[in-house]
Nucleic acid binder design. Structure first.
Lengths: 153, 153
DNA sequence: ATCCTTGCAAATTGTTTGCAGCTAG
DNA sequence: CTAGCTGCAAACAATTTGCAAGGAT
């Protein structure tokens, strides 16, 4: 996480005004909550959190804002185990990361691996493609008896 | 594809009877259509194909059968571009493959890369996990001007 | 006979959209 | 003012489930 909220948000601001769109209080709030969350929240969780600060914000606005942020490439989305899309702030393009998920407790751990990314490029090239993006998710179990990340749910 | 339908289906048969479940004509039909399809069909497409051979088979049965096959690890599921789950026959565990999708025409190409798999294992171990499974999807564009795999849809 | 399975339709779930009122610029 | 935005509720789409009838052992 190499940026702070203000930097990221002013980028948002810029992008929006470029298209005659507005940085409304709701959008700013949703963005800030998502940013400080810094995890992989789904719409429902995000909506709960946002409502904690402004109970008038509607579900649809959260959806629409996320879709907006996504189209501006300011957030990334991933659909992991359950069917729900999960969102996370997109930082600098370079530090792309992937995810490792514990089959026992569902905890999502991030990691980066430049070597794998190199090989992905090589694979794509061999297949005659220019690699644009990728998604990689590893599923596993903690080696320890009790998963150290075990959560209540 | 290292197996033929009969081999795969008798495995299914075995698994089913072990749980007092039955290999009904519908299940066999759905399985066979999925097998010969050997692609990445979604439920709707599969249902259409099945209906072509037996118009009485219901939508829910296709869903239930796929879920069943999935739980027996005889099919794998992946959700690519559109929101719909796509299914493919799981052959021997060893020849796991991943997917490369063309952003232009949506064609799904399969590939295997042992080197990447090795690195995935290494990453998981470093994070303190025993790697159980993974999903990797590469998104790209054909280098050629006109995508050779271009499809109508 | 028992109990798994089916087909249908209704119910759920996650997400999108239409619209009238509201609001930032 | 006047687009763009919001909240609500209704609409959608993918998938699941309840149930009565059908079928295999």
């Amino acid at each position: 996480m190499t940026q702070n909220f203000e930097q990221w948000c002013s980028e948002l601001q810029t992008q929006l005004s470029r298209n005659q769109q507005r940085l409304t209080p709701q959008r700013r709030l949703i963005a800030s909550v998502l940013f400080e969350q810094d995890g992989h929240v789904n719409v429902d969780e995000l909506h709960q959190l946002v409502r904690g600060k402004d109970s008038s914000v509607g579900y649809a606005t959260v959806y629409r804002t996320l879709k907006l942020l996504q189209s501006l490439e300011l957030v990334h989305t991933n659909t992991f185990v359950d069917g729900t899309a999960r969102y996370e702030v997109a930082t600098d393009d370079d530090d792309h990361h992937d995810h490792m998920i514990c089959r026992d407790c569902g905890t999502i751990t991030e990691f980066e691996n430049a070597e794998i990314e190199r090989l992905q490029d090589a694979v794509a090239e061999r297949l005659g493609f220019e690699l644009v993006d990728h998604r990689m998710v590893l599923y596993g179990r903690c080696i320890k008896v009790a998963c150290p990340n075990k959560q209540s749910n």
